[in-house]
Design a protein around this nucleic acid. Structure first.
Lengths: 218, 218
DNA sequence: TCTTCATCTAAACGCCTGTTTAGTTTGGCT
DNA sequence: AGCCAAACTAAACAGGCGTTTAGATGAAGA
């Protein structure tokens, strides 16, 4: 089975990505526009090559019938075997917590994320994901926009990084129980800790403990 | 939110099924053939209704741009598991680079990691993962032990965080081309930059650009 | 009964799209 | 130098395709 040229590979990737993103594959001309190939035949040459090498199928003369084969998908790294027998987790990405709902509720869940279990610590607790908002934990290497993974747990030990609910808003802080009060410590020199009075802690809740982080660059 | 008629539901189902089976949605006429609707307008009436009721999207006047919305999929009982049809990537975790081998080679690949494609930026380039060794990029929020994701690329623009090879060892640094030399800048006050002489850069190579990061806590 | 809506036929317009033919350019290989 | 494959420009054809206009039928409500 022949290998692909760099250009062929890029075009195959574009077809797969476009089908993924839009729900339907691109036309020959749309591929041309994306790669600044002026002639439809320039594109067609690549499609012929991809088809000849078994990475792509076309159906008759139907528009948008460009579909990557299993081989093609494998070439792009979309279908190989992950760690043997190790499960891929599916974690809910939560937006926030609407009053009167459970955290893991369709109303709060924005998406489901697939993640290799090797990328998170072992735990028997329920897990969820959330998007970091703000720079409150920047000195702990947790940046605005990062995805955090947490295990559900209603209490935190001293110094653990927890996802907490304060008056309906989710936040990420280091938690330090200090007798009558709880100190929520940001990891940012420009910010002050928040204190929660244990005796009247309405509106405060520990939602979970941070167990992982994912960042997207660029 | 209005409900669907029996006919509208059937047509929505056909669109989703066809897209699933073929890899691309049907045309207006193909829908007509399947349901023995002689006029394209007969079909179009249904599409308009489905669109109006928020179960279907069409993109301009593009062919085969019929895609069920999240609501539409829910109506059909398809409330899919992870992100709708979005692929899960399988990226090689590389240990290093043995002399005379390609980076993505069984000899260098320690494991395959499954990761939701939504967690990394879109790219047409090949991707790989590596484990961070050392505190050289600690001020950029990249810690010892983190897993980094990179796209394969032989050059880096100024300031990009790159995976580089220096005398056989992989390292992660910000890259700054400076005329006759290249500055490899750590993000750690305690460390000094390394300089590569462009004219005799044997043993130096850019392997890729960092596109993501995964951290495991605790 | 009158109205509304869902469903459909028929026909036509005009851009969209895949395909083909006929070349050119570039780089690697012999 | 000669050859070949990859990659591309240019132009054109024919049928595909979305859309619109005009109208028909029947069932459900008001």
């Amino acid at each position: 089975m022949e290998g692909l040229t760099q250009r062929q590979r890029e075009i195959l990737q574009f077809i797969v990505d476009t089908a993924e993103r839009n729900g339907f594959p691109p036309t020959v001309r749309e591929i041309g526009v994306h790669f600044e190939i002026k002639s439809t035949n320039g594109v067609n040459d690549h499609l012929k090559a991809l088809e000849r090498k078994g990475h792509l199928t076309r159906t008759g003369q139907l528009s948008r019938s460009l579909v990557a084969t299993a081989l093609g998908r494998r070439t792009l790294g979309l279908e190989s075997e992950p760690g043997e027998g190790r499960p891929t987790l599916h974690l809910p990405l939560v937006r926030g917590l609407l009053p009167g709902t459970d955290l893991i509720d369709p109303l709060n869940v924005e998406d489901m994320l697939a993640l290799d279990s090797a990328l998170l610590p072992r735990t028997t607790a329920e897990r969820f994901a959330l998007r970091v908002q703000g720079d409150g934990m920047i000195d702990a290497g947790i940046f605005n926009g990062d995805i955090l993974f947490a295990k559900r747990q209603k209490s935190a030990r001293s110094g653990e990084i927890a996802v907490v609910l304060i008056d309906g808003d989710m936040a990420v802080r280091r938690v330090y129980p200090e007798g009558e009060r709880i100190r929520l410590q940001p990891a940012n020199d420009a910010m002050q800790p928040t204190f929660i009075d244990v005796s009247q802690s309405k509106g405060f809740e520990v939602l979970g403990i941070v167990i992982g982080l994912q960042r997207k660059f660029g």
